[in-house]
Amino acid sequence: MSRSVVVTGASTGIGRACVDQLVRAGFTVWASVRTDEDEAALHRDHPEAVRVLRLDLTDPTSIEAAGELVRAAGPLHGLVNNAGVALPGPLEYLPVDVFRRQIEVNLVGQLAVTQAMLPALRLSRERGEDARIVMIGSIGGRIAGPMLGPYHASKFGLVGLTDSLRAELAPSGIRVVLIEPGAVATPIWGRGTAAADDLAKTLPAGAERYAKQIAATRANAARSAAHGIPPARAAQAVVRTLTAPRPRPRRVVGPDATVAAALVRLLPYRLLYRLAAR
């Protein structure tokens, strides 16, 4: 009998790449999506090995319903908390509702899904089997720059959430791992730019003082979409984390993330902050 893994945000990017590689590795995958088109695509490509969950991280009812389905099916080997959004804008003028949504999806939603799936993960441990939780963070959880304050706040928060979960679940034998990719060529950058366009229409005149930083952030997003590592590379790290006998508790993925992590460790804060401001 194949082991099962839940992957959130499985329609595109890292999540979809995780589904594809986990199926090839012999897992049964519970893949969460939000649209009929995405569900149909998963059924078409993996008719036997994928079970689709309709899941909205801001909807407690849908999270609990997904948890009930997974729990009813038996033990769960792994949970990959991947779903997320990037909502950019200058913090001085950012509507608090936008900031709240960013935290709700990227941080609160991760905990809610984890709570819903933990009984099935515990069942795996009770049967003498493995159980692991993989959080998809970001190098943006180690170093923060302008115009992505909501995203950075959510990813810095995810580090703390992951570390506490790791400590709390250690006595139960449930491993908790944080994956920290750098730039990945996924649709999140295009969606983030679209969100920025919508926000720009509502910003007051004073927001013009941020024009240069906004332009630089847009250019960085375009470069990430075009030249970031392929989602499959991040997915490989996830699969290794779910299958390695002793996975590292934190794993940086991608050359830019490796460099940024080294700078955070080595540079004085004053210099690090000057670089980030640029």
Rank of each mutant, 00 (worst) to 15 (best):
residue 7 V to M: 02
residue 12 T to M: 05
residue 13 G to K: 01
residue 16 R to M: 07
residue 16 R to P: 04
residue 25 A to Y: 02
residue 25 A to D: 09
residue 25 A to W: 03
residue 28 T to H: 15
residue 30 W to H: 13
residue 31 A to E: 04
residue 31 A to H: 07
residue 34 R to S: 12
residue 40 A to C: 00
residue 40 A to H: 02
residue 42 L to K: 09
residue 43 H to F: 12
residue 44 R to G: 02
residue 47 P to Y: 04
residue 51 R to T: 14
residue 53 L to I: 11
residue 55 L to T: 06
residue 65 A to H: 13
residue 66 A to V: 02
residue 68 E to L: 14
residue 69 L to T: 15
residue 70 V to W: 02
residue 74 G to K: 12
residue 77 H to R: 10
residue 80 V to E: 03
residue 86 A to M: 15
residue 91 L to W: 12
residue 91 L to E: 10
residue 92 E to V: 12
residue 97 D to F: 00
residue 104 E to Q: 14
residue 104 E to P: 00
residue 105 V to L: 10
residue 105 V to W: 05
residue 107 L to C: 04
residue 107 L to E: 01
residue 109 G to W: 03
residue 112 A to F: 05
residue 116 A to N: 07
residue 117 M to G: 08
residue 119 P to Y: 09
residue 119 P to W: 09
residue 122 R to H: 12
residue 122 R to K: 13
residue 123 L to Q: 15
residue 124 S to A: 15
residue 124 S to I: 08
residue 124 S to K: 04
residue 125 R to P: 11
residue 127 R to Y: 01
residue 127 R to M: 11
residue 131 A to D: 07
residue 132 R to D: 11
residue 132 R to A: 13
residue 135 M to Q: 15
residue 138 S to G: 12
residue 138 S to W: 06
residue 139 I to Y: 06
residue 140 G to W: 06
residue 141 G to D: 08
residue 142 R to G: 08
residue 146 P to D: 04
residue 147 M to T: 12
residue 149 G to V: 15
residue 150 P to F: 06
residue 157 G to R: 05
residue 157 G to H: 04
residue 161 L to W: 01
residue 179 I to A: 01
residue 181 P to D: 02
residue 187 P to A: 09
residue 191 R to W: 11
residue 191 R to M: 13
residue 192 G to W: 01
residue 192 G to L: 03
residue 193 T to W: 10
residue 194 A to L: 08
residue 197 D to A: 14
residue 203 L to S: 09
residue 204 P to V: 06
residue 205 A to W: 05
residue 207 A to G: 09
residue 210 Y to E: 12
residue 214 I to M: 14
residue 220 N to R: 15
residue 221 A to M: 15
residue 223 R to S: 13
residue 227 H to F: 11
residue 237 A to N: 06
residue 238 V to E: 02
residue 240 R to Q: 14
residue 244 A to L: 05
residue 244 A to F: 05
residue 245 P to M: 01
residue 246 R to I: 09
residue 246 R to T: 15
residue 249 P to I: 08
residue 249 P to M: 08
residue 252 V to M: 02
residue 256 D to R: 10
residue 260 A to S: 15
residue 268 P to L: 02
residue 270 R to S: 15
residue 272 L to E: 06
residue 274 R to V: 09
residue 274 R to Q: 13
